[in-house]
Design a protein around this nucleic acid. Structure first.
Ligand SMILES: [Mn+2]
Ligand SMILES: [Mn+2]
Ligand SMILES: [Zn+2]
Ligand SMILES: [Zn+2]
Lengths: 152, 152
DNA sequence: TCGATATTTGGATTCATTCCAAAAACCCAC
DNA sequence: GTGGGTTTTTGGAATGAATCCAAATATCGA
């Protein structure tokens, strides 16, 4: 299910933290890579159960937390909604379509990122930036081939 | 407590939605304006009780929701932490000091905002942007006089 | 002042997430 | 390969911010 290249990445990154590459962790990481649509823990749970009916919700939460901790996955929050998970490690923004609920990855070029950092007064040392757009996205057409990729 | 000018704003904005300017709403709006430090509902509740010991937490939540609905106050979320409230209506970003927990308002110039919008592919119509920095801020000195204003 | 309407209130409820302690899986040394 | 120390998984209980509810109050125009 999970590609050998990612398999290696997973094992390595986990190993670096003294953690094991378990069947559950592989499954969940694989699911996130396979369908890069920013699912919630519950959605991941539903998908995981299809492959491994015995998996528990607690394990899904544990695995996701572990993957985030190893920087294999990022978490995304919109307002107070359930946390979503994203395997796109590029520095990117998110667009949340309030009509459909879909989440889109938005690439950020270095130029814009650099510009953005200039808003911080001296003494502010950012370790991360989070940029979330909220609005409506026109029905996808040739969009998937552009820089933004559809997601649920 | 609340300045007459803000009093008017409050009554007007509420009135536009067919809502009443109650004692509780005035108090809470006044508290947010007075100490612009992005307090949580609980913190607002604690402050409110000092002025009005009979006020209930439910009312604080109700009032905050109403103020947000009337665009008199904005809400800010960091990760999964309790929602914070901000009376700064300028389009601005936030800096969350993960060491101290303090939240700083960061002004955004139109130039940067315009640049930021260019990252969106055609068809994406943003109705709001949310920009949150997370990191550490050097101990305040002459910072308060700059564009970023300290907050808890 | 009266009555219709809006608001407040305390308590119960929700629900995503975290915690817990027992069972299972893993891995290395022997 | 087996045993034993360690990690991980698991189901269920607990947490806590936020929401819901229905009864009591307050508000405001007529
Ligand atoms: Mn990319
Ligand atoms: Mn300003
Ligand atoms: Zn993403
Ligand atoms: Zn603010």
């Amino acid at each position: 299910m999970i590609q050998p290249e990612h398999q290696t990445t997973l094992t390595e990154k986990l190993g670096q933290s003294g953690l094991r590459a378990t069947r559950q962790r592989e499954l969940i990481y694989g699911l996130l890579l396979e369908q890069r649509d920013h699912p919630t823990a519950d959605e991941v749970y539903a998908r995981a159960k299809q492959e491994m009916p015995s998996i528990s919700l607690a394990t899904v939460y544990n695995c996701l937390e572990t993957l985030v901790g190893c920087h294999l996955v990022k978490q995304v929050n919109f307002e107070r909604q359930p946390t979503r998970f994203c395997p796109n490690l590029h520095e990117h923004a998110h667009f949340h379509d309030e009509k459909t609920g879909r989440v889109y990855d938005i690439d950020l070029d270095d130029r814009t990122l650099a510009k953005l950092r200039t808003v911080l007064p001296e003494g502010f040392e950012p370790r991360a930036v989070e940029i979330n757009f909220r609005g409506v996205a026109a029905p996808a057409k040739k969009r998937a081939t552009r820089s933004a990729t559809a997601a649920r």
